[in-house]
Structure formats: C-alpha cells, structure tokens
Amino acid sequence: MSSTTDPRGFSKAFLTANAWLVYLFFYAPIILLVVYSFSGDKLVGRWGGFTLDWYRAFAKDDNVQGALWVSVQVAIVSTLVSVVLGTLAALALERFKFRGQKVFDALLYLPIIIPDVTMAVMLLMFFSQFFNVIDSVLGLTLSKDISTVIISHIAFNISFVSIVVRARLEGMDQRLEEAASDLYASRWKAFRFVTFPQIIPGIAGGALLALTLSLDDVVIAQFVSGPGSTTLPVYVFGLIRKGVSPLINAVSVVMLVASVLLVMLSLLAQRNSEDKDQKVNDENEDDDQEVSSGSSSLSEMSIN
C-alpha cells in the first residue's frame, strides 16, 4: 500500500463513513438489547428505570434453568465426541492415503454446506424410521430425548472440528515430523511428541467452534428433541414466538455473554498459536510458506 494507491477525498470519506455505519449496524441492536434487559418497564424496549428483576426471574424460572442444563449437557458431550472423531478424521485425511478417501472427504463437507432445515428434516425422519425398526425387531420403544439431540449435534460438529484441525495440520511444518522419524521415532511417538503438541491450538479452536455451534442451534434441536429435552435456544424460540418479554431479554443477554466469552477464548487460542508460528518463523526466516499459515487459518476458521 503506498500513497499513490490510497483513496483520497470523497472516496476516502465514503469508505470511512461506510465502515462506521457497518459497525453501528453490527453493535447497536446488541447494545440496546443489553440496555433494555435492565429496564424496569414491563414493555420490552421502553426504559423504566434500572432493575435486576429480570435476571432474578431468570434465576428462579425452572423451565429456563432446565433448558439451560440440557443445553450445557448437549454442548459438552457433543463437543467432546466430535473433537475426538473430527481430529482422527483430520489426521487420516492430511497424513494418510487410503481407499475411499475422496468419498470420505466429500461426506465430511456435506454437513457444513447443507441448510439447517434440510439437516433437521433428515434427522427427524431418520430417528422416527430407526425407532420403528428397533420397535419391530427388538420390541423396544424408543423416543426422542437428549441423546437424539446429542447425536444430531455430533453429526454436524465432526465436520467443523475436522476442518479447523486440518487447517492447522496443513499449516504445520511437516519437516518436523520427518525429522522425528529420521531419528527413529515410531509413528505413534512422532505423533505424540511432535504433531500433537503442534495441533493443540487447532483442536482447541475446533472445540470452541463446536461448543458455539451447539449452543447456537435452534432448528435441528427443535426437530429432534423430545418433551423433556428442550434446549435453551428451542425454549427461548418458543417463548419469542408467543411474544416478547423482559425475561427473554435477560435470558438473551446471558446467552450473548456466553457466546462472547467463547469468541474471546477462541481468539486467544488463535493469538497464542500465531505467536508460536511467529517464533518458528524468526528462527528460520527463509521459510515464507509459514508466514501465510497464521492468517489463512484465521480466515478459514472464521468463514466456517
């Protein structure tokens, strides 16, 4: 970027104004929501003096608490399982060649690009069909409960975790692994002591993404949850459809804070990994492939 290519005059003013406008658009609704969650007025969106009543109501509401607990369980279990399966899948695709690899790669991409509604419909039909088969073969009567929600969330989270971990594996200096095996490290040892420590930021990033997506999902959970396994977003969605209330404001702000915390954590994880990359770069400066890996993994993660 030099001075001859810098926009000047009108275009510069336009670009700056547009940037502020976009940020205003991004943040004004969120900030207003937070402000109004402290409002004493029973009407949503009117200021009636500062109060914490709605947060107290949130803490007391059994339905909300129950749904919150379901969401937390679903998020944690589905994240743990998909982190293990997704990381193994990433390793298989990045470090091995096997038959059916292309098909597996495609299968792994599909849950990411498929629309929520389609995925929800698919899983609903699958579970009802599956339960019918179990019922007629084993005589067991199964129904939708928390496990169907967990399975569904694993089904889309595996793909997201594997994409993030793959980006990390791709950006990693493969010569380190080669050096390890040149020094007679077994494949397992090379993984345990060389590859694994290097991809931890990727795994952490994938896990945080999985947690966020699990807590974000309304559509799929709405289709596959049973009577006692309503997640918090599904419950809140139901409430909003009946009408807005200051209680929903408070619940929303709690969900907002949770997701902002998760963003901060994942940005922190990324920052740390980039610092490490930077150190590697300082040590061997001729390696310019590495320089781009930090920023490309950032954009890759953000897009997915």
Binding site: Y23, L32, L43
Partner: peptide, 29 residues
C-alpha cells in the same frame, strides 16, 4: 477491526434476531 467483525459473527444467532425484534417492535426504540 477484524475482531470486532468476528464478535457479532460468533454471537448466538437467535439472540441477534431477537435483538431486532425488540428494536423494531411496536413502540420500540
């Protein structure tokens, strides 16, 4: 600037939609 694009991007989708419901509501802000 990028971080401030990422925050709304990762923020709960339902909550972001609800914020507009409040903002646009009858007699709302």
């Amino acid at each position: 600037m990028l971080v401030f694009v990422m925050i709304p991007f990762w923020t709960n989708f339902l909550v972001r939609n609800y914020a507009w419901r409040v903002l646009l509501g009858n007699g709302g802000p």
